[in-house]
Design a protein around this nucleic acid. Sequence first.
DNA 1: ACAGAAACTCAACGCTTGTTGAGAAACTAT
DNA 2: ATAGTTTCTCAACAAGCGTTGAGTTTCTGT
Lengths: 201, 201
Amino acid sequence: MTDHNALDSTPRRGRRPGASNTRPAILEAARARFASDGFAASTIRLIASDASVDASQVMQFYRSKDELFAAVMAIPPVALDRFSTAFEGPDEHLGERVVRAYLGAWEGEPEESEPLMAMLRGAIVNESASAQLRSFIEARLLEGTSGRADADAALRAGLASAMLVGIVTGRKIIGVPTLVAAGTDELVAMVGPAIQQILVP
Amino acid sequence: MTDHNALDSTPRRGRRPGASNTRPAILEAARARFASDGFAASTIRLIASDASVDASQVMQFYRSKDELFAAVMAIPPVALDRFSTAFEGPDEHLGERVVRAYLGAWEGEPEESEPLMAMLRGAIVNESASAQLRSFIEARLLEGTSGRADADAALRAGLASAMLVGIVTGRKIIGVPTLVAAGTDELVAMVGPAIQQILVP
DNA sequence: ACAGAAACTCAACGCTTGTTGAGAAACTAT
DNA sequence: ATAGTTTCTCAACAAGCGTTGAGTTTCTGT
């Protein structure tokens, strides 16, 4: 709805003067859309409109909607090292640390949480997103279980991840009122011991 | 001699002889599609094709795609009493019983699990499905916490539900290999104590 | 200064979507 | 029988989708 007025000196067509940050703008708009609306409901035109850009620009930078999605997914989450450090250290408060790391990653700054939300929402309908989330979780699991000899350590880590993702889904996507109302510390206090029991039998 | 074939016994147009079970056939096809592909990817034409029916038939029985979806959701899950009985009984093996009830409900017969899968998949992209799943979970929570005085009993039950739904999501939707490979008994043995700890502090 | 690449707008394409209406055949009444 | 309702096929619609190509303007390298 923001049409340039007639007195505007900037031409209506052709390349605009100055440097262009259109490409990252598109990526950011796509990230936000995919995170909040999911893959199918996020149309190219809507994303382009969010970035104040023509739809065909999106196609020029990222060759298709799928590649745009892949680009959003490929963003190395800033939260990545949160996980790796969470599994290190003494076993005593392992559960608590892991729970806090997960909740923090999904509920922190948009820059940090949106790729994860997009992954989660996209994994339901988009096959590549599902594979992406799968490999993401698996990579975390390998970090977490490195140095342990347990045969089922991977399974235990996978269970813990799935349970924590379930809590995040309930809070951020489905919106179960009971979970939404709960504070982070309260959750950590309750879930920490349970996760501890899963990870360190 | 071009159009009507006198030898053709099955007419191509008009109502077919005999009783019609088209309406339930559509509902069943829709349930399966919504469960496996989610709301957006399940097109009316595809569902109609699954049910060997014209697309406009779907619109005649259920007035819109949204109402079709609502009809699928409205099916009272056979698994319903599984949950209510799981919370009853002594606290000793409560966690184990609840875990077994959840896994069984989502991994049993298609008739039993498909409405739940459709709910879960639909909750990501469809607002009404999200509300439906929310109220479904809340109803289970009320059953589970009835008779308990704890102020945070509802939160504990909600957490347990979310964690178990997370495990099911990892197994049936995202397909985390580690979780898929695990057997039900193995999962119950690992997760049972953790859920127990959540529910009975 | 000049050529080529890059950024941008605009208009359209082919396709699929949910949805509708006309009409044909079979059922259910009276 | 006759009328009316229900079930069904077929063809089309308006809208939205992802995508493409042509043309215009600016930047960049030489």
